[in-house]
Design a protein around this nucleic acid. Structure first.
Lengths: 224, 224
DNA sequence: TTCGTACACTGTACGTCGTACGCTGTACGA
DNA sequence: TCGTACAGCGTACGACGTACAGTGTACGAA
């Protein structure tokens, strides 16, 4: 066992790539990805800034590693149910994870080489679809459609200016409605008013669209 | 007419918020949003860095303004056709615009207050849906689903490691396939091989999923 | 026991970033 | 003629990523 592996086995003392990446994610969750600097990260780990470069070639590599850990957190589609239930499970999990790590969404745009967890995830999803009777090209269609929905939903959810339904209700009348003069934006203010009155749960909205998508994909499947 | 308006009317001489934002977008298109600094932007405009702050309170405001210009570029749904054609038009336009300005997607995550063009756009889309017979809550569902698909697709497209189909073909065998050992990723390498063989056009893929989504939304509409 | 080497880590320094602050020159109404 | 507003600039500060040249410690070999 090398010294490096010993270090990794005893997480309290010393650094490790694992510890660096995990702490980086914690910082990014707390303060956003802009608040994550090598110096602050090192400080949070009780180390000097340059020590991080022993475990990570540069900040880009750190960000790649962070993204891959996020993919690790997403549940793989279970293999013991029908494809729709399996896809629903993994999509719901993906939304939760991306809501927990909103910075991950914006990082995905700039990072073009998928990490191992990302690949494993895609493989599992594709396997599920293929086994359910989707042809190669239809599985590709399904992949694009499902992932687009999941990522796009997460992106919109991240850019909502509130976090909880309660916060929404608090801010509704004071902040949002004044931005929407009813004569200029009649339909938007109508919708906004209705949503504020009814309360609003992104999780429910997500499931609604997801089930529409899953139903729309069903005909692409050849019976097994 | 104030001096400032005079400046805006004669775009060759002097700066203007308009000119600053347009040049910022050009730079971001060329070099990505990380390559956009106030100094480089000022340099490209033949001005000193601090001059920009006469037109823009800070960089955040500049980014907000850039995003809003992007929304301005997206076609509004035309009013003289059925709702599906109208939505298809604006979705296709949105994909094109976001493919042209990939940095815009990652900026959307962090910017929570929509600009005027953004609001106008949402208003027009909602108006189109409501007039087509969607109830307030169903129009909201349709909005979320359509926007999620568009943004998510653009996000995935932006993170593709190639730009053109030709580039894809060039890199396929040398770069991608070695990343996908068939014993570890059987389904992914199967798909990859099939895609490389058939060529691949994101625009077609987009339309395919979009039409599935539109068809899935049709039943939510009450006949007019 | 000594010593060379690899490991884990650090301090300093460079160039770049956003931007606060104060200083221009110029145009123009009074 | 002069005060004022406009439009823009130069300098400076702290924070950023990271190249580079170290430092001490552990350990296998001699």
């Amino acid at each position: 066992m090398s010294a490096k592996e010993q270090r990794q086995a005893a997480p309290d003392a010393g650094l490790s790539k694992q510890r660096v990446v995990v702490e980086a994610i914690r910082l990014a969750d707390l303060e956003g990805v802009d608040g994550l600097s090598m110096r602050r990260l090192a400080g949070a780990l009780g180390a000097g800034a340059m020590s991080l470069y022993y475990y990570v070639a540069n900040k880009e590599e750190l960000l790649d590693a962070m993204i891959d850990v996020v993919f690790e957190e997403i549940e793989l589609p279970p293999e013991d149910t029908d494809w729709q239930s399996a896809m629903r499970r993994r999509a719901v999990s993906a939304r939760q994870v991306l809501a927990r790590h909103p910075w991950a969404i914006s990082l995905m745009e700039s990072r073009t080489t998928p990490g191992p967890a990302n690949l494993r995830h895609r493989e599992a999803v594709t396997a599920c679809l293929r086994r359910a009777g989707f042809s190669v090209v239809n599985a590709t269609h399904a992949n694009w459609l499902l992932d687009s929905y999941v990522y796009g939903f997460a992106l919109q959810e991240a850019s909502l200016p509130f976090d909880t339904a309660g916060e929404l209700a608090d801010m509704a009348e004071d902040v949002f409605l004044p931005q929407l003069p009813p004569d200029e934006f009649p339909y938007l203010s109508e919708s906004a008013a209705a949503l504020f009155a009814a309360g609003y749960d992104p999780a429910e909205e997500f499931i609604f669209g997801l089930d529409l998508v899953l139903a729309a994909l069903e005909p692409l499947r050849a019976a097994a």
